[in-house]
Nucleic acid binder design. Structure first.
Length: 263
DNA sequence: GCCCAGGGAATCG
DNA sequence: CGATTCCATGGG
């Protein structure tokens, strides 16, 4: 299925490259193969237009996935008065927070510890190819049930090292109902975070990544090494009220900007 | 053979 | 509580 969507202020490239997803491939400059939930699409941005090709689903799915309904200009306006946030807003204000599958985000960020993005993407692609459902192009991220009976030997192909044990613990807890990902959204952020942190290898940072990238909890603030550097550089005396107006989104712009070397 | 990647957990004070 | 130290593995 092919179709177009008109967007305002959105940047496909900034959104995909902002470190929240590991499930896309650049097939040409500014032209991506994007996997989400059980779907895949080729997408390209030109100005205010998104061109979708060979989508496995209807436009509404991608509209929701890329969070195109949310009023981000309000958030960006709220950053006025904080000089750092004004800079990053001008640099990458086209970032949107994707609506990703919680199980997928949990597994991907468990793989992120002591790791780099290209390698995480490689591990995830091997995981999908070996255990996920085949799509028209590529493979879907495996469900908890598809991974339920995997052991350390099965995961040796991932070359994920010590992280494989984390995956197995997470899968087991999800499959037995100990961690019910479908119920986290009804809990308070603090309660949901506690539940996630019961998984081996999940601390506050990874829990907050799941809450932000899968549950759209903009009030959380995952602090990774890049963001920590910015805090030490510019926010020694504390975060501004503008920052605290939407920590999750501010964090995402700061991460992308710091990694790009503009701040 | 060494260094790097980026987090969690345990153990302090 | 916050700060410090140790730990884990594969790729270049």
């Amino acid at each position: 299925m092919n179709f177009n969507l008109r967007v305002k202020g959105f940047s496909l490239q900034q959104t995909l490259l902002s470190g929240q997803s590991f499930r896309f491939d650049e097939i040409a400059p500014n032209h991506y193969l994007v996997f989400a939930w059980n779907n895949v699409v080729e997408v390209e941005q030109s100005g205010d237009e998104l061109f979708f090709k060979n989508s496995t689903c209807h436009p509404e799915f991608w509209h929701n996935y890329f969070d195109l309904n949310y009023n981000y200009s309000n958030l960006l306006c709220g950053f006025s008065g904080d000089s750092i946030l004004e800079i990053v807003r001008g640099f990458c204000g086209g970032i949107r927070i994707l609506k990703q599958n919680p199980f997928e985000v949990l597994i991907c960020f468990l793989l992120s510890s002591c790791n780099n993005i290209p390698r995480i993407k490689k591990i995830v692609s091997v995981l999908c190819r070996n255990f996920g459902t085949q799509l028209s192009c590529g493979f879907a991220f495996p469900t908890p049930q598809q991974l339920e009976h995997c052991n350390l030997n099965d995961f040796a192909i991932l070359k994920a090292g010590f992280r494989s044990a984390y995956l197995i613990d997470a899968i087991r807890n999800v499959c037995c109902g100990n961690l019910d990902l479908s119920k986290l959204s009804s809990l308070s952020v603090d309660e949901a975070r506690k539940k996630l942190m019961n998984i081996k290898g999940v601390g506050k940072k990874i829990a907050d990544c799941v809450l932000l990238f899968a549950y759209h909890k903009f009030e959380v603030f995952p602090i990774d090494v890049w963001v920590k550097r910015v805090l030490q550089q510019y926010y020694q005396s504390g975060l501004s009220s503008q920052f605290l107006s939407c920590p999750g989104f501010a964090q995402q712009l700061i991460y992308y900007s710091k990694r790009s070397g503009i701040i």
